[in-house]
Computed example of a mutant assay.
Amino acid sequence: MIQYKQLITTIVISFFITLILGPIVIPILQRLKVGQSIRDEGPKTHMLKSGTPTMGGLIMITAICVTTLTSGMLNRDLYVILFATISFGLIGFIDDFIKVVLKRNLGLKAYQKLIGQIIVAIIIAVYQSSISISSTKIFIPFMNQYLDFGILYIPFIATVVVATANSVNLTDGLDGLAAGVTLIVSSFFSLIAMNWGYPSIAVFCGALTGACLGFLRFNAHPAKVFMGDTGSMALGGAIATIAILMNLTLLIPIVGGIYFVEALSVILQVASYKITGKRIFRMSPLHHHYELKGWKETKVVVVFWSVTLLLCIVGLFSLN
């Protein structure tokens, strides 16, 4: 079983790879003029972010891949998580490329992204249902037992993967928010994987944690680079697959509660406006609502990080 020393080493390696790549990749993105465009209806303070390089998720994805592929812990599970990370990252990259390089503001059409995401999600679901000793069973938090989803397993898992990837994407709206939240969530899963006998998954979680920590060096306020859909989609796909391969799918809305409420705020906002013509929040996703209420961006980020930490503690109790 992987030891704490090995896990820390993995985190450190990924962290330093990210730190090294940042000063190399960011100037390249600047020269390519792949700057972030800011919505006019958003908080006015965000207009200062216009032109900040995006697609910085390439830095994290590279660090994660290099660290895991050289870890000596390669197995099928690790390859599946890498597949999910790279595939969702590629979907995000294509979307970013169309928006910031080809200057088409809408990027990929919604159905195009959804088709790609569903295909990848189904592959992950089929793999887990075929390979896992638990088959179509999923652990139920707080109850210390498994529930067999049977024929509903594949559509359920595919839905979770797609929903998680898009939820992380929605969370990526403030400097350091998505990277910080994912850093905490991946740290949680690294500890669980290490103690539950999933050494290769623990290694990947360590690489993900280190990459997020290193990326915060460039993405914390004031951000020098944004991860873009390239990064947020990759992080979402990774977190979902990590939980699924350990049969802890139902932990995602607990430890990833911030992802969940960010996505829920958008759904409720749209539904309310279409049905009643009124908005529930000043702006969605939720982090913008608090900004428009007068919270500083850094306060929103720190509060959301803190909430995630508390939710991960709850997640630990739910496994006992």
Rank of each mutant, 00 (worst) to 15 (best):
N219H: 09
R217G: 09
L191G: 08
L183K: 02
T182K: 00
M194A: 14
F189V: 03
A193L: 06
T209A: 15
L174D: 00
P222D: 05
A220N: 12
W196Y: 14
D175A: 05
L183P: 03
G197S: 10
W196K: 14
A211M: 03
V181S: 01
G197D: 12
L208S: 15
G180F: 03
F188K: 01
A211T: 02
F188I: 03
S190N: 02
F215H: 13
T182F: 08
T209V: 14
S200K: 05
L177Y: 01
G206Q: 11
V185R: 02
I184V: 14
G206C: 10
I201G: 07
S187Q: 00
T209G: 11
S200N: 08
V185T: 15
A193I: 07
M194K: 11
S200G: 09
F215K: 09
G210D: 02
S187I: 13
R217A: 14
N195V: 02
L216E: 02
F215W: 13
S186Y: 11
G206E: 04
S186N: 13
A202L: 09
L177V: 01
H221M: 07
C205V: 07
C205K: 03
W196E: 14
P199K: 08
A220W: 14
V203W: 05
I184D: 00
G197V: 13
G176R: 11
G180D: 03
G180E: 06
A178M: 05
L208Y: 10
M194R: 13
A207S: 15
L191A: 12
G210M: 08
G214C: 10
P199G: 12
I201D: 02
G180K: 05
N219D: 07
A220T: 12
S200D: 11
G214Q: 11
H221E: 08
L213N: 03
R217T: 13
L191F: 14
A179V: 00
C212R: 07
P199S: 08
G197L: 11
G210N: 07
A193D: 04
Y198F: 15
I201Y: 02
L208E: 01
A178W: 04
S186Q: 12
S190W: 04
F215S: 11
F189G: 02
I201W: 04
F218H: 15
G210V: 01
A193T: 06
H221D: 09
S187N: 05
G206L: 09
S187M: 15
S190R: 03
C212W: 05
G214V: 12
F215Q: 09
G176I: 00
H221Q: 07
L191K: 01
